[in-house]
Design a protein around this nucleic acid. Structure first.
Length: 279
RNA sequence: UGGCCGUCGUCGCGGCA
C-alpha cells in the first residue's frame, strides 16, 4: 500500500492525473484502502483540468472502498459548483448527508460563493440564515464572500454593515476581506473612497498589502490618473510594500494601451533590474 | 509547545474552449 501511495503521490505531483487514477484503481483492486488525502488532491487535479467525470469517479472509488470525509466531499461539491453543475452538486450533498458525513462551514461557504457568483445574493443570504439556524458559526471567509457580492450588487453601505456585523461576532477581517472591499469600490467607480479606505486600514489594525495597492493602482491608471498612480507607487514603496510582478504588469499594460510601447519596455527592464522575473 | 501536510474567499496578463 505504501508503494502504491508513493506512486500515486508522484503522479499527482507531476500532474499526471490519469496515471494516478490508474494506480488508485490498481490499489483498490488489490484490496488496499484508498487514501483520503491523496484522493482529495486527485479530485482537485481533475477539476483543475476540467475533468468532472474523473473527479466524480475518484469520489465513487472512495465511497465504495473507503470513507470520504468532509474535505473530499467539499472538493467535489466546490468543483462541481465552479463548473456550474449545480444539480450534480446538490445530489452529492444529499449523498454525503445520507452517508453520515455532515456538511461543515466550508460546505456552506462553497454554496454561498456559488450563489453569489451566479448573481443570486438573496439566496446566498438565505443560506447564511440557514447556516446560523443550524448552529454553525460563519467564518471570515463566509463574510468575505458575502461582502464582495454585496458591493458588486451596488451596496457599498450594506457591505460595510456586513463588515461591522462580522466584527461584532468576534471575526477579525483579514486582507482578503479588505481587498475585496477595495476592489469592489474601484469597480463601482468609487476610486477615491477606495483610497480613503486604504488610508484607514491602520486604524483597523492592518496595513495595505501589495494586492491592495495593485488594485488601486490599476483603477487609477484605468481612469488615466497617471499622477495619482505615480504617487501611489511612491507611497507603497515608502511604506515598505515592494511592487511585485503584477504591479509591473499593470503598469506595462496601461502603457501599452496608451501606445507607449518603448516606455513599457523601460518599465520591464527596470523590473528585471530589480530582480523580478517576467512571467 | 509550535509548524507543515488534502476542501471555501482578494491583484495584472496570457493560454485553452
Amino acid at each position: 500500500r505504501i508503494h502504491f501511495m508513493d506512486l500515486l503521490n508522484r503522479s499527482c505531483r507531476a500532474g499526471k492525473y490519469s496515471e494516478a487514477l490508474y494506480f488508485l484503481e490498481s490499489m483498490v483492486s488489490k484490496g488496499f484502502k484508498p487514501d483520503v488525502i491523496l484522493c482529495t488532491k486527485l479530485i482537485k487535479g481533475f477539476f483543475n483540468s476540467r475533468n468532472v467525470k474523473m473527479a466524480v469517479k475518484v469520489l465513487e472509488i472512495l465511497e465504495s472502498h473507503g470513507h470520504p470525509d468532509v474535505f473530499a466531499y467539499n472538493a467535489v461539491i466546490g468543483g462541481l459548483c465552479k463548473m456550474n453543475r449545480i444539480e450534480t452538486a446538490t445530489k452529492i450533498l444529499d449523498r454525503m448527508r445520507t452517508r453520515g458525513c455532515l456538511p461543515d462551514v466550508v460546505t456552506y461557504n462553497i454554496l454561498i460563493g456559488s450563489l453569489c457568483n451566479r448573481g443570486k445574493l438573496g439566496l446566498a443570504l438565505k443560506v447564511l440564515d440557514q447556516l446560523l439556524e443550524d448552529n454553525y458559526l460563519p467564518t471570515v471567509v463566509t463574510y468575505t464572500i458575502l461582502i464582495e457580492a454585496t458591493i458588486s450588487d451596488g451596496g457599498v453601505d450594506a457591505a460595510m454593515k456586513l463588515l461591522d456585523e462580522m466584527s461584532s461576532k468576534g471575526l477579525r477581517p483579514d486582507m482578503y476581506t479588505y481587498n475585496v472591499i477595495i476592489r469592489g469600490m474601484c469597480k463601482e467607480g468609487m476610486v477615491d473612497q477606495a483610497y480613503e479606505f486604504i488610508k484607514g486600514l491602520p486604524s483597523r489594525g492592518r496595513d495595505a498589502d501589495v494586492i491592495s495597492y495593485n488594485i488601486l493602482l490599476r483603477a487609477f491608471l484605468n481612469k488615466k490618473r497617471w499622477e495619482d498612480g505615480e504617487r501611489l507607487m511612491d507611497e507603497m514603496i515608502s511604506k515598505g510594500c515592494m511592487p511585485n510582478v503584477v504591479t509591473y504588469s499593470i503598469l506595462i499594460n496601461s502603457l501599452c494601451q496608451e501606445g507607449k510601447v518603448d516606455e513599457a519596455v523601460g518599465v520591464l527592464k527596470d523590473m528585471m533590474s530589480r530582480g523580478l522575473a517576467p512571467d
